[in-house]
Amino acid sequence: MRLNTARQAWHDCTYASTSSQSVFASSVAQLGTKVQTTQGQRRASQAVHQTLAGSVQAAIAGLSRPLRAFGNYMYAPRLDACEQEDAEETVFLMVQRRAARMTAAKREKLGYLVKGVMARYRYMHQGGQSANADPLAAPEAFRAWLDAHYGIRLASASWEREWGGHVRSAFECCEDLDQRALAAVAGRMNEMKKIA
């Protein structure tokens, strides 16, 4: 495990490598679940990885549930449906608090818009380097994606007035949660680097 970025550390601390991916996949396919075997990896690199991963996991465990859910949604190698729902609800509530009053129908559409923004944000920051471009930056592409994934049609006529501010607000909320969640991991990484 390398301590390059907090995003990468978050991903790597929950990633369990196996000596043979095909053997692992075969056992999961046959048994329907992962089974711990008595033959563990005894290399020094594995021990170092486990030590570093445990320290980062402790920092993550100290976060509040919404921050931990958001971080796991963004960076964990396996996406948990419950944590995804928690993360989406957290961002939705933040966006809704920042918005003016709206009808129930618009609030429902806003929920799907927030899910779409979170998917975009996740894609842009995966890999730990935040190097991916926003694939749905054009409103037309984003509207088409929302329609294809959720069956939600948002009018293009007054996009900026109706939805542009909500999209920006959702991105701002994601950035705020991201910074707060990663601050704990970055702090722990700095402590570990000082010791090394």
Rank of each mutant, 00 (worst) to 15 (best):
L52H: 06
P66E: 07
L110D: 08
E83F: 05
A133C: 02
A119W: 04
Y123L: 11
E140K: 11
S55Y: 03
Y112N: 03
A47C: 09
S55G: 14
G165W: 00
W159F: 09
P135D: 04
V167N: 05
A53M: 06
M94L: 15
K106P: 00
N72M: 14
R101L: 14
W145C: 07
A44G: 06
H125I: 03
K109M: 11
T103M: 03
A61W: 00
M74Q: 12
A138N: 08
Q50K: 15
W163A: 04
T90Q: 10
A81H: 06
H166Q: 15
I152L: 06
Q84D: 01
L113T: 09
E88H: 10
L113C: 06
S55V: 02
A53Q: 10
T90N: 04
V56F: 02
P135K: 09
H49S: 13
A61Y: 01
D134C: 04
V56M: 08
Y123W: 14
N72W: 02
G165K: 03
D147S: 14
Y150H: 11
S130P: 00
L63H: 01
I60F: 02
R107L: 09
D86K: 10
T51K: 12
A148E: 14
L63Q: 13
W163C: 04
D80E: 10
L63G: 04
E89C: 08
A76K: 05
R107N: 09
P77S: 04
R143A: 11
R122N: 02
V117C: 10
E108I: 02
A157F: 05
F171W: 07
L110C: 08
